[in-house]
Design a protein around this nucleic acid. Sequence first.
DNA 1: TGTAAAATAGTCAAATTTGAATATAATAAT
DNA 2: ATTATTATATTCAAATTTGACTATTTTACA
Lengths: 190, 190
Amino acid sequence: MSVRLVILGLLMEGDKHPYEISQVMKERVMDHYIKLPKGSLYYAITQLEKKEYIKVIETVRECNRPEKTIYRITEAGREEFQRLLIQQFTSSERRYHPLYAALAFAKLGDPLQIAEMLRIQMEEIKAGVEGMERIYEEHIPQVSRVILHMMMGIIEIGRAEIKWLDRVREDALAGQLSEVGEPLDLTDKA
Amino acid sequence: MSVRLVILGLLMEGDKHPYEISQVMKERVMDHYIKLPKGSLYYAITQLEKKEYIKVIETVRECNRPEKTIYRITEAGREEFQRLLIQQFTSSERRYHPLYAALAFAKLGDPLQIAEMLRIQMEEIKAGVEGMERIYEEHIPQVSRVILHMMMGIIEIGRAEIKWLDRVREDALAGQLSEVGEPLDLTDKA
DNA sequence: TGTAAAATAGTCAAATTTGAATATAATAAT
DNA sequence: ATTATTATATTCAAATTTGACTATTTTACA
């Protein structure tokens, strides 16, 4: 799972406590492209410690704050990281867009309501793409090309989704979603 | 969750036993765009029955096969279906490509190995897209436009991913993934 | 004729994910 | 001065997912 990859990857740079991992991810806008809920973070930390891929270095208490438990990656952890990196690169996990399931049953819903919901979806995706475009521009001088590539991937996949949903929405507005035997017109109007 | 939507959606067409739901999904190639492992299917059935969205109609035993428990959707179930359909259409669940996490830590891996893994990924995606293109062509005369739209979405998102990964791979081969401050060249070479 | 594979139908323990709850301190706002 | 919000830091129960296992029948095939 990517959670472990991220934890080990960030610990490769230096010792950290779990909350700090979460912070670093935000600073580097990783939370925009990697999912890591807190529950999963602490759970994964426990698992990694059990398997001795990481170990506790010290527990610090500043002021009256809760204790911070600082972890360090072990030699076995570094090997595990390489394994996980390859696994992540070769993962053939399929991703299912929630709208696939929705569209599969669209005939049982109200076309105009569907058109409206698609419009909102498109706006959300557009907002996400524009946000990532800004982040991309800001990061050009600072980050490596591979990170820029990754961001550009998010942008272009988002753009493809918008084009796609725009066609579906037009059809919904025209009340043609349920028509059978009519091939789609895919001429690019953009 | 989409599992419940699918179960209720298929039961809207008529009574079925769990295994039959699984079969119908395969016949309609839904397994290509909706994830529904068996464990989750039976779990969801139990949950839906608890909440009385579906009820047992009869248990049949043919020959010496295991019993088939046949379910029917209730009136409350039909209402729940409409609720779930809207929820699915308005879901803003973000989808995280496994390669995002992989690329975020690519600097800690071997560039040539990464290029090779990206090549394999691209081939897998290409195979998926070509498979869906065939399914699309075959289904044109039989299914509603909304289903064609959905399939075309899968195809076009896949194509966008291939173009994206092709650029990343070129950079990996050129050993440029870790370079900082170099904007990407996005001129379309296709 | 034997035997391997695929289809039928479902169960279950274990791993994981989710999201809310806990507790305190610092900062901002009215 | 008081209230609200954000930040720090973690825990936990409950819901869900996974994937392997059970058991039988039918079909393919050598």
